[in-house]
Design a protein around this nucleic acid. Structure first.
Lengths: 250, 250
DNA sequence: CCCAAACGTACCATCCTGTGGAACGAGAGG
DNA sequence: CCTCTCGTTCCACAGGATGGTACGTTTGGG
């Protein structure tokens, strides 16, 4: 089995970098028993790829960027989480008799991980793998509501494109939407991404980080303020349950 | 700036793998615009290095191992956590007037991330970077108490080596120690790693995973059962505070 | 005060390693 | 039966990765 040597080296460097504290080129080289120049090149490469960052002081030290953390969380969210979430999603679907979906964030979008269809004839649906805009999907807003103000501002400054005539694109109005979601603990919206669909969603928060979101979608005509509130409680419960169970499998 | 090409490819493959769902060689190759054979070799390499795993069914699919998640957590714990923990550690030191330290786990050991010395003349001390055995340090036991039984059994089956005459090495006795720590919410021990040092420690649990441990070490002669109980409450409070604040920085 | 050692960085000839096209066997589907 | 796609293997070539070496600084011991 032939294997790419430099990648093996790269992984060893990454492992070393994951250790607490900042390290210099020479120290890594010593630990790995590799030539300094090779390690130096490796670090520059990893920096280029966005995995390592150099902290330039009197002497250059290296550390990992949050990329590893993000990718790890992201993967875990999409895979480990799916099996954890499924039973809860089934409960939620049976309780609401509406379509239930689970999404994770990817950059400025959300990716649908799983979708359980409502048993009713008229129902909302998205396919696993579908990509929705972060700002124009209820699940995306639920995720946004867990994130620092700065992230929100960055997103807004990129411009909020409309997916339907109802999509909220005004910065101030959008901030209100997110603020409301923070207060209630769940997000809600009608026709933001697709006309005629009303959704309610809550973020799944693990370790203070919103790693995924679970939501319920209904045809807009079936939705009432009372139902919205009730579904809100349901999705929050479901999100908490999933978050609680999640992470027990290392 | 010269850069290792293959590593750039590797990172692109890893990023693709972090997406939810399993993927095949061809799909990755298509997404990346790279030759199938290159991707295939890359995947074998990543498997060899422990980052990717192949799920062999009728058609081979690939996914990430938990390695990325673990390294990411580990790094975050050692760095992001340090700044989060410092103020809490200072409080804890001032409240107890004893040495306070923060450790993270690495395999079957714990690594000291930070140590704030007691203001008293006679005091315990460890240096940041010091490596202690998981089973013979109170912080290690605190971490162990958060982990599945299987991990505990694995550790015991490797044999518990004694660091001092007092180190608990008997499997049954050790299981009792961990069980006690689970019940109380913190671990306590005297002279397990160094004679004359009595420590109390609580795990910092984020998302169900014990990512670090915070402890108080005193010279054994200063310790009393009442103090142990009081310090236990202190470290648990500190651990909870840190866990709560942690993770808010993406 | 100077020398030695350790740091991060840069260069470059050599050689080895990664490349990617091509081909294979196996299934799936029409 | 043919075709398309899957994962997998092979190999000659070429170009990139290698690591010894050297340089400019900074530290700290003598």
């Amino acid at each position: 089995m032939s294997v790419v040597q430099s990648v093996l080296t790269a992984t060893r460097v990454l492992e070393r970098l994951s250790e607490p504290g900042l390290v210099g080129v020479s120290e890594i080289a010593r630990d790995l028993g590799a030539p300094k120049s090779s390690v130096q090149r490796m670090l520059l490469t990893l920096k280029e790829a966005g995995w390592a960052a150099d902290v330039r002081g009197e002497t250059t030290r290296w550390t990992l960027t949050p990329k590893m953390f993000r990718l790890g969380q992201h993967h875990h969210a999409g895979n480990g989480l799916r099996s954890t979430a499924l039973p809860v999603m089934e409960q939620l679907r049976d309780a609401t008799r509406e379509t239930v979906h689970l999404v994770v964030q990817r950059d400025d979008t959300v990716v649908v991980v799983e979708c359980l269809d409502s048993p009713q004839a008229v129902r909302a649906h998205v396919d696993p793998g579908d990509v929705l805009p972060l700002h124009a999907s209820t699940n995306g807003r639920a995720l946004l509501s867990t994130q620092p103000e700065q992230v929100l501002r960055d997103l807004i400054s990129k411009g909020l494109t409309a997916s339907t005539p109802s999509t909220v694109t005004d910065p101030a109005a959008f901030e209100d939407v997110i603020r409301r979601a923070r207060e209630r603990g769940f997000a809600s919206g009608e026709g933001q991404f697709r006309d005629g669909v009303h959704a309610v969603a809550a973020p799944i928060v693990v370790g203070g980080v919103g790693i995924a979101s679970i939501g319920v979608s209904t045809p807009a005509q079936r939705m009432t303020p009372e139902l919205e509130e009730a579904f809100g409680q349901y999705v929050m419960d479901a999100a908490r349950t999933i978050a609680g169970r999640f992470g027990e499998d290392l």
